[in-house]
Every structure is written in C-alpha cells, then in structure tokens.
Design a protein around this nucleic acid. Structure first.
Lengths: 334, 334
DNA sequence: TTGTATGCGTTATCAG
DNA sequence: CTGATAACGCATACAA
C-alpha cells in the first residue's frame, strides 16, 4: 500500500506538498499539483485514515447503538440519522447490541478510545453511573429512550400519546380495556402505562390490574399475553398494547380463538412500525416521527461535537394517532 | 483525556512499562504493575485505539455492507456474523447503503484507508472492476449475492431451490404458474428465474412469458405486479414469487380481489423472512440458512485476513423447502 | 510556492 | 525487569 512518502518521492516533492494537494489547502503551483495527482492516481494512493484521525483528533464518524437491528422500529430512525450525517460529512456506523445490555458498555468504550466522535444510543440500558461519566466528557445523545435526567435526548411524550390512544378507545365506548406492556424497568413502558392509567382516571373508570399483562415486546409475547385475558369472566372489549408487535401477536391469538377484530374486540398498538399498515386488519396505533427523531438526534449530537451550545437538552417531538381498521373506526382510515 | 505518558509520569515509570502492563505482556515486577494499575484506574486511562491501530496495523474490526437495513432478510445473517466475530475477538460495524449503490463504493474505501481489516458485502452492487481491484488486495467476501467469478462468496443454490419450489407446485397439480421477479441484472433473480424455467421444462410445460412480472422486491411491488395477472383470460392457479415480500404483496392483492389463498390460488415465496411464518395464511417458501451464511462468511473473511489458505472460494449452503399454508398443502405445516 | 521538523499515542526493538 | 528510542502515516507551524 502506497503512503504519502511514496507519492512524494516519486513525484519529486516533499510530503508536505502532497498533503497540501490531497487536502486542497494551502497554495501549490498548478504544474506540481498535476504532477502529484498523476502519481497519486498511478499508485492508487489513499491516505491512511487512521493516521489522519490520530493527527487531527477527529474521525468524522459517529456510532449508533441499536438494541436489536432485527426490530424494524429502528429503521426509519437510522435513516434519519444517516441522511443528516451524510449532509454534514459524517459517517455513521451501526452497532447492534442483539439485545445484550453488556454490548452497549462495550461500544461506549469506542468513544473513549477515540474511534468515533460521538454516540447516539437508542438503548440507554447502560448503567446510570457509566452513562453519567461518559456523557460528562463526550458527545452522547439518547433517542427514543432515556435515563431520567441524563444526557440530551429526543423522544415523544409517551404519557400523552398513550393517554390519547386510550382516550380514543374510551370515546368509542370501551370501558374494559386491557393493557399489554413490557419490562417495567423501562421508562418508556412506564410512561405508556401511566398514560393508560391517566386516561382511565380522567373518565372515571376504575383500574383493574387484572387487565394488565406483562410480556416480551414481540409477536409471540403478545400472543401468549392474550391468553389469560381470554379467560376472564367479564371479557375486555379492547386491548391497548404498548408496542405494535405485541398488538399483532394479540390479533393472531384472537383469530385463533375465533374472534374478529375489530367487531368482537378492538386492538390498538404503539410505534407504527411498517408491518402495522400492511397487516389485516390494519393496526390503529401511535405514530412516532421516526425519521425526524433520527435527524434531530444527529443534529443535537453534532452540536455537542462542535461544542455549540444546546438550546434545549431534552426535545419532545410530536406524535400522531393513526386510526386504521383494528379499532372499528375505519371511516377515518388513513 | 489521559494518555500513556500521563500514566507513566504519575506512576514514575517509563511509558514502555505502562504499555507492558496494559497488554499483559513482557515481564514487570508485581509491585510496579500494581502501582501502574492504580494510576490507570485513577485517571480512567483508556489506550487510544487509533494510535494502537496505526502502530499495529490491524483494527480487529470488520465492516459489513448491507443493501438496506430495513430489509429483515439480513438480520439473521448479521447475527451470524456478529456472533462468529465476537468469538474471534473482532468487532463488526454495519454500514447501511439505504439502497443507494454509490454508498457501497464509499465504504469500500474504508478498507483501503485501513479503518477495517476486512469487508463482508451483502450487496455486490459495486462495479466489477472496482470489486476486482479491491478484492485482489484486501480481504473481502460476498454473501447471498455474487458477481460472477469474483471474490469468495457464500450462497445457496438459487437455481435448484427455485426449481424445487416450482416442482412442488407442479406436483400439487398446477400448470399455469406465474413468476414474480425483480431486477433482471441481479444474478440472484436470474438464477431463480432459471430455476422456474427449468422446472417447467422438466415437466414439459411450455413457458408463457406473459405470466412473468417484474417488480420492486417489496410488498407494494408484489401487490401491483399481481394486477395484470388478475386480468388474464386464462387465469393462473399459482404464483411463485422470487422473494417473500413480493409474495405477501401478491396475497394482499388477491384478498382485495376477493380471492382466497390457497383455495383459489397458491402462493409461494423465497427467503423465509420472519414475517412469512406469522402471516395468515403462513407462507410456503424457501428457507435460506441465514445464520449459517453469516457465520461462514465471517470465518472465510477471517481466513483471508490471516492469510490462511481458502479451501473453496465459493461455498454453497443447503436450503430447505418450508411448506406452510399458502400452497394448500398444510398437512405438512411446519 | 515549497520544504523541514515536530508531534499525534501507541508498540516494539534494543540496551542496560 | 526496565528505559530509551525509533517507527506507524499523516498534518501543520515555521522557515526558506
């Protein structure tokens, strides 16, 4: 592999000159520039990025930590990040935790080792203390998730969104509304649960914790979580799942039980992942502005990297209620 | 950020000694080791990986180029790569092309710039000449795709798999079988098309190119590609889609037309993506051993990196025919 | 307009 | 067992 020295020697100039033409910076006589360029081409010289980065102390690379690349929820977010990064001359690398919390710690080291200029975490499953320590020294932003009171983050108002959704179900006449949720340690699921409770409270509906099921946030999780609800003496008429995959799992279980959605029971989800619009019946859900979340996350990170002041450390984006078929109000089907 | 020099100075030793204790290599007196370690901890010293990599000329990192991270087909492959890499002390970074061929070129530079030790491409959409040039100098393996006669690659036998699937349909009594395919420039789709043709030929069924539709390999693509087939004078009784997403799109279109799968028409897909098993009716398809493809791809790459000899440059893994509901043979439902 | 020299933070080769 | 010192490949301040 050719180095800058090889080019310099063959072109008969100093390596400083080669450096100048490579970076289009400083002044160099057109004729010598041409001579250098010809050698560069002949040798297929590519600057060693490692050396450049070591020298300049910046990598123009950010890493985004994804809990599980298999979760389609993250795709549009990634796209938002990527396009925004591209626009600003940054490279984005994706690190897949494949759902193992330990992996996040591992990638947190990447920044302490100068391999990247910043981190966007879509997980925040790292210990609060480590997050604190790293975030105080390096550019980090968290999106879609958050650890209370730490680091800049981008989310929607999960409480309000869940409350809206359950309010919608109540408006449709439902009184016995089940809730499918997941890991109670996650602020996200806690917020959505709180929204559910708030909506019930507002309508004077008393809470029945027997209608709340905890499960894995997957199709299969929703499927099995639906079973105890089917055996209730007084059946529920609606289910609010804190994630679309759980909602789809619930629908599959209902179909197996010979029940129809939305005629026999209404189902609502959360997130608006791609398959929700394709599923039959199409799922009523909360749309998160994923692409924008991604864009904002990168913009915020970039400000951190460039040490520009952050106007607001926490950013709340707008969600929207997407009414499709699964709640029986398909007049408004989008 | 503390450097090795800071540690050395504060611990009252030379930086060579610090390097030794960090790498657990060479001999150093237990007491000085302890002294160094204490300082390391106090300063929270982390070696600068950039400098290490520049010095040692290896990054222990590989990059995998994914055509579109939103395509769930790739997830298990990534998982296979990641676990195999982890086992060998390598880090894997994912580069998302978001379906823009130009992006692959961009990441091909990463290796020429010494940022990674090797590349696994799941795309192979780069120009043959560039692929040739880079592959001749650097460790690269292609999986699931291939450019004829270049670089080590891992695939299944797409021709045989498609032929098997269409053979299955023929065995079920079908004679008029449509084929949904995509970009004819892709060897993959060409192979599957050839398999389709081979199966017809073997059974003495004459080919009717009017039954072949080209479309985007998406749900929507399959949906619209189904329309002309619906208007045929002599309708088809089965559809073989060269990808599961197209198959699902076709099913959605049929449902809209009031037709039932598999009673009115049989549908078969290819790839066995996750949603295919969940869809109702569940899709009959060709299973690609994605996890193993990922593992083998990394192993092969590692041999390339370590300059070990490659026994076979091209590796063909076993596929399997997964019979579910969409072809009406649900006796064998898996 | 060009060249020289220094340093980025390591590892590794020598001596001692 | 430990310490100088020379690379690794580049960018840049300073001279010329």
């Amino acid at each position: 592999m050719a180095t800058i020295n090889d080019v310099a020697r063959i072109a008969g100039v100093s390596l400083a000159t080669v450096s100048r033409v490579m970076r289009n910076q400083g002044s160099v006589k057109p004729t010598t520039r041409d001579r250098v360029l010809r050698v560069v081409e002949k040798l297929n010289y590519q600057p060693n990025a490692l050396a450049q980065q070591l020298r300049t102390q910046e990598t123009h690379t950010v890493i985004v930590i994804v809990p599980n690349i298999g979760n389609t929820f993250f795709h549009k977010i990634l796209l938002g990040i990527e396009l925004e990064a591209e626009k600003n001359g940054y490279q984005v690398l994706i690190a897949d935790m494949h759902n193992e919390p330990a992996v996040e710690n591992y990638y947190f080291n990447a920044i302490q080792q100068h391999l990247v200029d910043g981190i966007i975490s879509l997980s925040a499953s790292v210990a609060k203390s480590l997050m604190n320590q790293v975030a105080s020294e390096y550019p980090i932003v968290v999106a879609c998730q958050y650890i209370e009171g730490i680091t800049p983050n981008i989310t929607i108002d999960n409480v309000a969104a869940a409350k809206d959704m359950v309010g919608h179900l109540i408006n449709l006449g439902h009184r016995r509304i089940a809730h499918l949720t997941s890991n109670p340690a996650s602020p996200l699921y806690r917020d959505r649960f709180n929204g559910y409770l708030a909506a019930l409270a507002q309508s004077g509906i008393s809470v029945d914790l027997g209608l709340v099921q905890y499960c894995e946030p997957t199709i299969n999780g929703g499927f099995t979580a639906m079973e105890p609800l089917l055996e209730l003496n007084e059946p529920v008429t609606a289910v609010f799942a804190a994630g679309d995959t759980m909602a789809i799992g619930a629908m599959k279980r209902l179909k197996k039980a010979g029940l129809h959605v939305p005629e026999d029971i209404a189902i609502a989800g959360f997130d608006d992942i791609e398959i929700s619009a394709e599923w039959e019946p199409a799922l009523t859900t909360i749309h998160q502005p994923k692409f924008e979340i991604g864009q904002h996350a990168f913009s915020k990170l970039l400000k951190l990297i460039k040490k520009e002041p952050l106007l607001q450390t926490q950013e709340i984006l707008d969600y929207s209620l997407i009414i499709r078929e699964s709640c029986g109000s398909n007049r408004n089907k989008q």
